[in-house]
Amino acid sequence: MRMVSKCLLTLFAATTVVAHAQPLRIFACEPEWAALVRVLAPDAEVSSATHVLQDPHHIEARPALIGQLRRADLAVCTGASLEAGWLPMLQQRAANPAVQMGKPGLFFAAEQVKLIGIPEQVDRSNGDVHAEGNPHLHLDPHRLQEVAAALAERLAHLDPTGAPAYRQRYLQWADRWQQRMAGWQSRAASLRGQPVVAQHSSFAYLWAWLGLRQSADLEPKPGLPPSPGHLQQVLSRVRSELPLAVVQTSYQNPQPGEWLARQTGRPLLALPATVMSEGPAATLDGWFTRLIDQLLSASTPS
């Protein structure tokens, strides 16, 4: 009898300990935020709603995502209307009070930094422009660090017992990250001032950071797929000043880029717009290294 009650007591103690040590469940809208969460909160259970081969503007509010958001303690998203076509529906359907608008369990990266590309006038005849500005801010390592700092504080707020650890991990990471940034920038110095042709404003922050110039856009208007007529115009515009490369993301249809690359004799680069699902580019460090490597590969004549 004593034995049984002792057993039960141990069992009870064990379950309470487990309940306390329950890892945070984190729903990341995009893989870059999942990667950042893994740096700051390696014990958290993190899922990413999208991956590198998907266009984050056009995700469906799939049943699996509703299930994932239902259990989340924290949702980490980009904001600036990037997820406007699907996140509100997920929030509405998941019935999870923790991740509703204005709650600490909903973190928008775009609210932590100043955005570029804020339009003076929003009119849909100019394409699908975001009134808040360009949401692809994770391609600027400086802004990414600002977001990391804010995210560490948010994690500390949600999980006070872990607060010192989140802040500690942020400081360690930021230290390493700044060295990395300096390294990437010196390696990419030769790219400064060079023109590139790209599709959409996906890489605008990267160009601004490295001093590259987007001389033309494969899209006739933001959010519209490239059309043959527009590609002809792009071709005639870039003939006088050939771009370093034609750049697309890995989720964009490569055909328009291939065509322009053939016509101009410049290489086509399919850059991952976010961290990849596996391989060395599955971390933020590895991903930026890959971006720089790919851009440099275009500038060295082969």
Partner: peptide
């Protein structure tokens, strides 16, 4: 009245 189960796939 709706109820969503705490599971990785959707049960509503």
């Amino acid at each position: 009245l709706n109820w969503v189960a705490p599971s990785d796939f959707l049960v509503q």
